[in-house]
């Protein structure tokens, strides 16, 4: 049996008909909005109900299906090794990582400043350190997936006839 590389398997997975269902602009953007709502939910929970730590686990589990669906919606362009992408998809991937780098640096700086304010600038007020751990984890996961998120937001709809691959 021929040994298949990781890139071959990933390319095949992201070309499957099941994956194509996610590849409309409306669905892509809905997924990005869902990711935003998920982040807002985690943040609100951690800040408003820090004692409800038992809710973090189930909420965190939502990240994985959301991130997977976003990856599917962009055909896994940010996941498939570059050697398995054609020129156009490789350019899309490079641009997504390039832009995500700058936005990620800005977001990380803002996150750092907010964290510092939250932890040290509230004299006399008790802030449970544990409650910011999930926010940090969420931001880390979001930054890691930012190239795919940005691509999902930007990619246009493919012309209908192309989905049938004929014409």
């Amino acid at each position: 049996m021929e040994k298949r590389s990781y890139g071959d398997i990933m390319s095949e997975v992201f070309q499957s008909p099941l994956v194509e269902k996610f590849q409309t602009r409306v669905r892509r953007r809905s997924l990005v909005i869902s990711m935003g709502l998920w982040m807002a939910g985690i943040t609100a929970l951690c800040l408003l109900l820090p004692e409800a730590w038992w809710l973090w686990g189930p909420l965190f589990l939502l990240f994985f299906p959301l991130a997977s669906m976003i990856n599917m919606s962009v055909r896994g362009v940010t996941e498939i090794p570059i050697s398995h992408l054609d020129d156009r998809l490789a350019q899309l991937r490079a641009r997504a990582f390039h832009d995500a780098y700058y936005i990620g640096v800005v977001l990380a700086l803002i996150g750092g400043i907010v964290l510092q304010e939250y932890l040290f600038a509230t004299v006399g007020e008790s802030r449970p350190l544990l409650s910011i751990v999930p926010i940090g984890g969420m931001l880390g996961g979001f930054l890691f997936g930012l190239p795919a998120v940005m691509l999902a937001w930007r990619l246009p709809d493919e012309p209908e006839h192309e989905e049938a691959a004929h014409g």
């Binding site: 055909r75 992408l85 054609d86 020129d87 156009r88 998809l89 493919e158 012309p159 192309e162 691959a165 004929h166 014409g167």
Partner: peptide, 27 residues
């Protein structure tokens, strides 16, 4: 079909569409 040509040229079938519409400059 675009898919058949894409296989011959080793590119994604949508890339053929982008080239045909002049939205992507082929290498």
């Amino acid at each position: 079909s675009r898919k058949e040509l894409a296989e011959i040229l080793s590119v994604h079938y949508q890339t053929i569409g982008y080239i045909e519409r002049g939205e992507f400059v082929p290498s």
